[in-house]
Amino acid sequence: MSTMTLTPVTRPAGGGVTALGRHSLALAQRSLIKTTRTPEALIDVTIQPVIFLLLFTYLFGGAIADGNRHAYLQFLLPGMLAQSVAMGGMALGQNLNADIEKGVFDRFRSLPISRAAPLVGAVLADVVRYLTVCVVMLGFGTIVMGFRVETGVVPTLAAVALSIAFGLCFCWISVWVGMLARSSGAVQGIMFLLVLPLSFGSDVYVRTDTLPEVVQSFVAVNPITPLVATIRGLLTGGPVAGPLTTTLIWMAGLLAVFVPLALRAYARRA
């Protein structure tokens, strides 16, 4: 080992929100490097939603839509987009849980950065996964299966942006569960228990008026429902303003509840 030369260690002042942003971005980059090393971790936002799309369109679509599979695809795809983004956040809690077990987070805790930065960084990196799911589903649906956007480029981009934004809010549930659960397997189990009723207890697959009344009242309060309605409006036409407002309120609510819960659980896990 040779002698050490000195590189000046400059530390620009500037704390608070800018520091949190800077550190979170550095940590998001870490997550992205990990993703490129294990591309198979992207299966749940690439192959899996495509299989679901094929399965529902060609296996159940005929029966559900009385033989008109194309009409069913037009109905199904926007809803599945919303559902896939919600499900795409499940992996985040699992990964964070595994990360903490390995001790990397001890290193982060011993650094003069905000306690929130490692979690915020991981969430920011998830943007890539949500963007992937949107591109894959819209691309595959349009090019291979014949889905047609009936509005235009701007509403489509808006639908993608909204999906990603919703995913970023919704995934804090997964982060919270990831901090609480004792193993990453448990995170997956708990999240499935939570996300399955939310995704199937909505109007993603069938029209609400075909459902029993009890289920209809669940669908009415399900946060996925207004998101699905907004994305349908943006991609295939229909009212947007009403469901969009409800969706935005839900997003704010998810952040207000689950960000503090996740941060507290993270602090306690030390």
């Binding site: 400059t10 530390r11 520091a19 800077r22 550095a26 940590l27 290193r107 930065a117």
Partner: peptide, 16 residues
């Protein structure tokens, strides 16, 4: 990564 979290510039972090 540690260097960036310690607020080193990208260049200084790589050099360090």
């Amino acid at each position: 990564l540690i260097g960036r979290l310690l607020d080193l510039s990208g260049r200084d972090a790589r050099r360090r």
